[in-house]
Amino acid sequence: MDFANRPSPTPDAVIRAANATALALDRTRAEAVQPWLSTIYSALDSLKAVDLGETPPSFAFKSRKSDRAS
């Protein structure tokens, strides 16, 4: 299965993605969001390099007893 990084989104792609969440973005807003979204997508794609195996998600910090200070 291809696990490639996603391409940088175009403003049109930003508008379509926003529509899917019922968030109306006009072209001006899409052009404002696009560079930042491209940066965060690139950062998130970098996490694919981590071998996660069966690691479960850590929804919030919960200390184990063994982690605690004595």
């Binding site: 968030l23 969001v33 930042w36 998130l44 996490l47 694919k48 996660l52 690691t55 998600p57």
Partner: peptide, 16 residues
């Protein structure tokens, strides 16, 4: 607005 467009799979990967 950008945060609206982050897929759940990315969020879960960050949690893992």
């Amino acid at each position: 607005e950008a945060g609206e467009l982050i897929p759940a799979t990315d969020y879960i990967r960050a949690l893992r």
